[in-house]
Computed example of a mutant assay.
Amino acid sequence: MEKTPNSNRVTISIFGNRNAGKSSLLNAIANQEVSIVSDVKGTTTDPVKKAMELIPAGPVLFIDTAGIDDEGNLGNLRIKKSFQILRRTDIALYIIDGLDEDDKNLENIETESKYYDIPLLKVVNKTDLLDEESIVKLKDKYPDAIFISTKNENDIELLKAKLIALIQSIDEDKPIVGDMLKPDSNVILVIPIDKLAPKGRIILPQVQTLRDLLDHGIKSFVVRNTELENALKDIKKVDLVITDSQVFKEVDEIVPKNIPLTSFSILFARQKGELNEFVKGVRAIEKLNQNSRVLIAENCTHNTNHEDIGRKKIPDLIRQKTFSDIQFDFKSGYDFEENLSDYDLIIHCGGCMVNRREILSRIRLAKQANVPITNYGITMAYLTGILDRSIELFKERV
C-alpha cells in the first residue's frame, strides 16, 4: 500500500476558507503533523499531500489546499491552484468554520464539484467552541453536513467512516487489459530499451500493465523489439501483443495480422480517458495546415532528448504528413487549462502519473473550448497507418 503510485490512489482534497481547520483536520486524520497549523490566516500556501491507507477502503491521497478566501495577487494564484486540485479530486471535503460561515465560497466549490461530477462532503468544524443553540441552527442550515471538532477523536473516526463509505461507492477504474482476455492467455509486451528508459527500471505504464496481467492470471512475455520475431516463433499461441508507441510501425510489420496488436498508451487511453473521444480527436490532423497550433500536454516533467516522443517524434511526423510547419506548444505538469481555444488540436500523454479524474477533466475542458483532443498512442498509430488495427481489440468494449 505504501508504494502505491498516487495516480492509483483515491484523491480526497480538503477545501475551505483560511483558518477553517483544514490543516488541523488532515493532521487529525493522519494522526501526525502533516500540515503546519497556525492562528495566522493563510499558513497553507501550497497544496500539502499525504498518502496513507484508509482501512478497509485502501490507499488514498489527501491534499490540503490553500484557503479559497485568500487575498491579493498571491492569494488569487493560491485560489487558482486550489481549484486546479479540485479538478483531479475523487472526493472533496469542504470545511465550514462553525464560528465564521461563508456560503459564497461554498457555493463556488459546489458549482465546480457538480460540473466535474465530484462528490462533495460538507464538514462543519469547531463544534467544541459552539453552544447548543448555534449547533442546532447550523444543522438546520447544513442538514447534510458532518459536525466535528478536530480535537475529538470520535468525530474523526466518524468522518473516516463516512469517507470509507463514499470511496466504496465510487466506481473502480477499469482494468488496463485484464478484462479483455481470458485467464491463461499469452501476451507479449514489447519494451524497447533506449536512451529514455530509466536505468535499471521500466517505465510506470509498462509496470502497471504487467501487474494487471498478473492480477488476471494472464501469462506475460517481456521482450525488446529486437527479440520480438524470435519470441513469436517460440510461443505457440499469442493472444495479444502490446508495444511501446515509439516502435509501433516496426512491431506492426513483425506481428502477423491475425494476432491483435495495441500499445501501452492506447490501453491507458481506454482506462483513464475516453478512447472514442481520442480516436475522434486524432482525425483533426487531417485538417492541420501552416496556420495551425497544436498543444502537446504532459502530466509529468522529465528531461528530453532527440528521441522524445512528445516533443520530437510526434511533431516531426505531423509536419511530414501535413507538409506544413505547424506551431507546437508544450505544457507539463498541471499547467493545462489556459487558452485552449487557441489550439486546433491537443495531443496528451498517456497519463500514467495522474488519476482518471484528471484526464476526464482535461477532456471536458477541451470539449468546452471546442478543441479536439487525442493522446500519444492514438496519434502514433494514426501517423504510422495502423490505427484501425490497434483499436480493433476495443471495438465492443469502449
Rank of each mutant, 00 (worst) to 15 (best):
V187Q: 00
V241F: 06
F62R: 05
Y142C: 04
D155L: 08
E338N: 15
K287D: 14
C349I: 02
L106A: 01
N375L: 04
L138H: 00
L345S: 01
F278S: 10
D335W: 10
C300P: 07
M52D: 09
L240G: 03
A145C: 07
V37N: 12
D244W: 01
D69M: 06
N305H: 06
D215R: 12
N291R: 13
T384G: 06
K104H: 12
I391N: 02
E112F: 09
G350Q: 02
L158V: 14
I202M: 08
F221H: 12
S13E: 07
V124F: 05
I235M: 02
S24D: 10
I203R: 07
L130A: 07
V48D: 10
E101L: 14
L54V: 02
Q327N: 14
K182G: 07
L214N: 15
I318R: 00
R311I: 13
D342K: 11
I242Y: 00
V371Q: 04
N6Y: 12
I188Y: 00
V207T: 09
E250R: 14
E107A: 13
E286F: 12
S245F: 02
L228F: 06
P372S: 05
A28E: 04
L345E: 03
T11G: 13
Y334R: 14
T11R: 15
I378A: 03
K81D: 12
I68F: 01
G21L: 06
E132C: 11
R293K: 15
I266Q: 00
L228S: 01
V48S: 10
E286S: 13
K287W: 11
E133H: 14
T150Y: 09
S324N: 04
T243I: 05
P372F: 03
P315F: 04
D90N: 11
L295D: 02
K122W: 07
L121F: 10
K80H: 13
S7K: 04
D117P: 02
F268A: 09
G377T: 08
K104Q: 14
V37I: 11
Y94Q: 09
F62A: 06
I359M: 09
T301L: 08
P256N: 09
N31L: 12
L383A: 01
R397A: 13
I202L: 10
G377M: 01
G178C: 04
N125Q: 02
R389C: 02
S35A: 15
I259H: 01
I109G: 07
M180Q: 12
Y334N: 15
I79C: 04
R201H: 15
V354Q: 04
K182N: 14
G42F: 03
N370S: 14
D128G: 00
L138Q: 03
P56Q: 03
D103I: 14
D316G: 11
T43D: 10
K237Y: 13
R9D: 01
V223M: 05
I95T: 03
E392F: 08
D131M: 10
E132Y: 11
A57P: 05
T243P: 00
T150C: 09
P372V: 02
D173I: 11
G281C: 08
I176V: 06
M380G: 00
V124R: 06
S24G: 12
G72W: 07
L261N: 02
G333M: 05
L295P: 04
E286G: 10
A284W: 04
